[in-house]
């Protein structure tokens, strides 16, 4: 069976040739099946976000190749990749345009599907109806505030909206970079629950960076542990089921010879 995502031995070095040179990714490979939901944990500077940036196309890799759904995207520009890759960041302010309305933000997200529609077309009544239905799913009452500016929403509301936008047109791959980390616990739970629901329902292949070890084992069907630009541990299936946080810490130590060092890591 063909894999959904194939990252083949990619390397990325920042500031090459200078004293600050840092190899952020070191011949890293990832192979995801269709519908895989991977959680990723790792020390500070392990290369988690760099991996996401490389896959999303924020920069091109120094070597190696990336295939998504059978398509070679190694040198595809970022904005073209984002047609098939949904992305969320930790900062709720990053995913939405504050001085535009909820409706306009959703329309922008919907542009991805709008292959063939004229760039000079306005938001149609049918689009609005669709946005309204999608917003209602969030259970935040946003469907009645479609003409409100996004800048007026709370961080949690904005992040929920961003989730909706990232999955508005079902992406081939969804990248979540600690997308609940900046929210208060109750809101974080809600956004996480929504994430599970949407990802499950649409069978989206997904990678999620988290600093919550328990969450990392509870959610999804695979867990990566990263260190020094490599994936040092990849647990799935039966092996993952009985795993505890302590087991994970031990495995990390066995794999790298170091203790897991992340100043924000939550162990429970």
């Amino acid at each position: 069976m063909e894999k959904m995502l194939d990252v083949n031995e990619i390397s990325v070095t920042f500031n090459p040739g200078s004293p600050d040179a840092k190899q952020a990714l070191n011949k890293l490979s990832v192979h995801l099946d269709d519908g895989d939901f991977v959680t990723i944990i790792g020390s500070n500077g392990a290369g988690k976000s760099t991996l996401f940036n490389a896959v999303a196309g924020s920069f091109f890799v120094d070597e190696g190749s990336i295939f998504l759904g059978g398509q070679d995207i190694t040198f595809l520009e970022e904005h073209k990749r984002s047609r098939i890759i949904g992305r969320m960041f930790q900062d709720p302010l990053k995913g939405t345009a504050p001085s535009m309305t909820i409706e306009e933000n959703l329309a922008l997200a919907y542009l991805r599907s709008a292959e063939g529609t004229s760039p000079f077309s306005h938001i149609s009544g049918r689009d609005k109806q669709l946005f309204r239905e999608k917003l209602a799913m969030l259970n935040m009452g946003l469907e009645d505030r479609m003409k409100h500016q996004v800048g007026l929403l709370s961080g949690g509301q904005r992040q929920a909206l961003t989730l909706l936008m990232a999955t508005m047109v079902t992406p081939k791959l969804l990248l979540l970079d600690e997308h609940t980390a900046a929210l208060d616990p109750a809101t974080a739970d809600k956004v996480l629950e929504l994430t599970r629901e949407i990802v499950g329902k649409n069978h989206i292949t997904c990678m999620m960076i988290t600093h919550n070890m328990k969450q990392a084992l509870e959610i999804g069907n695979r867990t990566f542990l990263m260190a020094d630009g490599k994936i040092v541990l990849d647990v799935k299936g039966e092996e993952r089921k009985g795993l505890t946080v302590d087991d994970l810490l031990e495995k990390f130590k066995a794999g790298t010879g170091k203790a897991l060092d992340n100043d924000r890591m939550l162990l429970s």
Binding site: H79, S82, K94, P98, L111, R112, P119, F120
Partner: peptide, 23 residues
């Protein structure tokens, strides 16, 4: 319009623009 919204978003939040397939 769709193009107009994309232009407005570019000035409003360029991070978001890149993540939503706008050049």
């Amino acid at each position: 319009t769709r193009l107009g919204l994309s232009i407005r978003a570019t000035g409003d939040n360029i991070d978001m623009v890149r993540a939503s397939s706008i050049n």
